[in-house]
Design a protein around this nucleic acid. Structure first.
Length: 108
DNA sequence: CGAATGACCAAGC
DNA sequence: GGCTTGGCCATTC
């Protein structure tokens, strides 16, 4: 639990929380916003601890694909949540894809 | 403290 | 144009 109290994770959660509804962001983007553009993996780790108060479902990889390995949530759930927010998610080959060109968060 | 791990990314083949 | 390799950063053992 010590990890979640660190400033890094807090910043990550803060940035993730700033993602507007109907938009998505990539891990690398979040990493850049917290000050470490190469720490995308760390961002993934931060979200892996699965905090309920963070809209982790708006964060996807740079391909626009859902790679969620959350313990209590599945990609199905994430896709459903995104579609509820107006993000179109298309399922291909049992994988969920999002149009980054349309829904990628500008970071503002 | 050194080595391994991970919801990643970019470059190379 | 899809698969493989390496690098990056922070956490964990």
């Amino acid at each position: 639990m010590s990890a979640r109290n660190n400033n890094f994770f807090e910043k990550i959660y803060k940035v993730v929380g700033r993602i507007p509804i109907g938009k998505v962001a990539t891990y690398g983007q979040i990493a850049a916003l917290v000050g470490s553009p190469r720490a995308a993996r760390t961002v993934g780790w931060a979200l892996h601890v699965c905090t309920e108060r963070v809209p982790w479902h708006r964060v996807i990889n740079h391909e626009g694909r859902i790679s969620t390995t959350c313990l209590d949530h599945t990609a199905d759930e994430q896709a459903f949540l995104l579609q509820q927010e107006g993000v179109k998610v298309k399922k291909v080959n049992q994988q969920y894809w999002i149009d980054l060109k349309k829904y990628r968060w500008g970071g503002k």
